[in-house]
Simulated scan of single mutants.
Amino acid sequence: MREIQNKIENADAILIAASNGLSISEGYHLFADNPAFRELFSDFRTKYGIRCIIQGMTYPYKTEEETWAFWSRLITRYVHSYTPTCQMKELKKIVGKKPYFIITSNAETHFEIAGFDSKKIYEIEGTLIEMQCAKACHKTIYPVTEMIEKMAAAEKDGLVPSELVPRCPICGGSMQLRYGFSPSFIQDEDASERYMTFIDQYYNQKLVILELGIGAGNRLIKEPLMKLAASGRDITYITINKGEIYIAGNIKDKSFGLDGDLTDILAELSSALS
Rank of each mutant, 00 (worst) to 15 (best):
189 E>G: 06
189 E>Y: 02
189 E>K: 07
190 D>P: 02
192 S>P: 11
192 S>G: 15
192 S>Q: 14
192 S>I: 10
192 S>H: 04
193 E>H: 04
193 E>G: 06
193 E>K: 08
194 R>C: 06
195 Y>E: 00
195 Y>V: 15
195 Y>K: 11
195 Y>F: 15
195 Y>M: 02
197 T>F: 00
197 T>R: 12
198 F>I: 14
198 F>V: 15
198 F>H: 08
199 I>C: 04
199 I>N: 07
200 D>F: 06
201 Q>W: 03
202 Y>D: 00
202 Y>K: 01
203 Y>F: 10
204 N>P: 01
205 Q>R: 14
205 Q>N: 00
205 Q>Y: 07
205 Q>M: 09
206 K>S: 03
206 K>D: 12
206 K>P: 04
207 L>F: 14
208 V>N: 13
208 V>L: 14
209 I>C: 13
209 I>R: 09
209 I>S: 00
209 I>H: 02
210 L>I: 03
210 L>M: 07
210 L>F: 10
210 L>K: 03
211 E>N: 11
211 E>A: 01
212 L>P: 12
212 L>Q: 12
212 L>R: 13
213 G>C: 11
214 I>M: 12
214 I>D: 10
214 I>E: 04
214 I>Y: 08
216 A>L: 05
216 A>P: 11
217 G>D: 11
217 G>W: 04
217 G>P: 01
217 G>I: 09
217 G>H: 07
218 N>R: 03
219 R>E: 11
220 L>T: 14
221 I>H: 02
221 I>W: 11
222 K>Y: 05
222 K>Q: 07
223 E>M: 01
223 E>I: 02
223 E>C: 02
224 P>T: 03
224 P>H: 01
224 P>G: 01
224 P>S: 07
224 P>R: 05
225 L>I: 01
226 M>W: 02
226 M>K: 07
227 K>F: 05
227 K>M: 08
227 K>P: 04
227 K>I: 07
228 L>F: 00
228 L>A: 00
228 L>K: 01
228 L>W: 09
229 A>K: 14
229 A>R: 05
229 A>H: 09
230 A>I: 02
230 A>S: 14
231 S>E: 10
231 S>M: 14
232 G>H: 06
232 G>A: 11
233 R>Q: 14
233 R>L: 15
234 D>A: 07
235 I>V: 15
235 I>T: 15
235 I>S: 02
236 T>I: 12
236 T>A: 10
236 T>P: 07
236 T>N: 02
236 T>V: 00
237 Y>H: 14
237 Y>K: 11
237 Y>V: 14
237 Y>D: 11
237 Y>A: 12
238 I>T: 04
238 I>D: 04
238 I>M: 01
238 I>F: 09
239 T>I: 13
240 I>H: 07
240 I>Y: 07
240 I>K: 06
240 I>W: 09
241 N>K: 03
241 N>M: 02
241 N>S: 05
242 K>H: 08
242 K>G: 03
242 K>I: 06
243 G>N: 12
243 G>C: 08
243 G>S: 09
244 E>V: 02
244 E>A: 05
244 E>Y: 05
244 E>L: 03
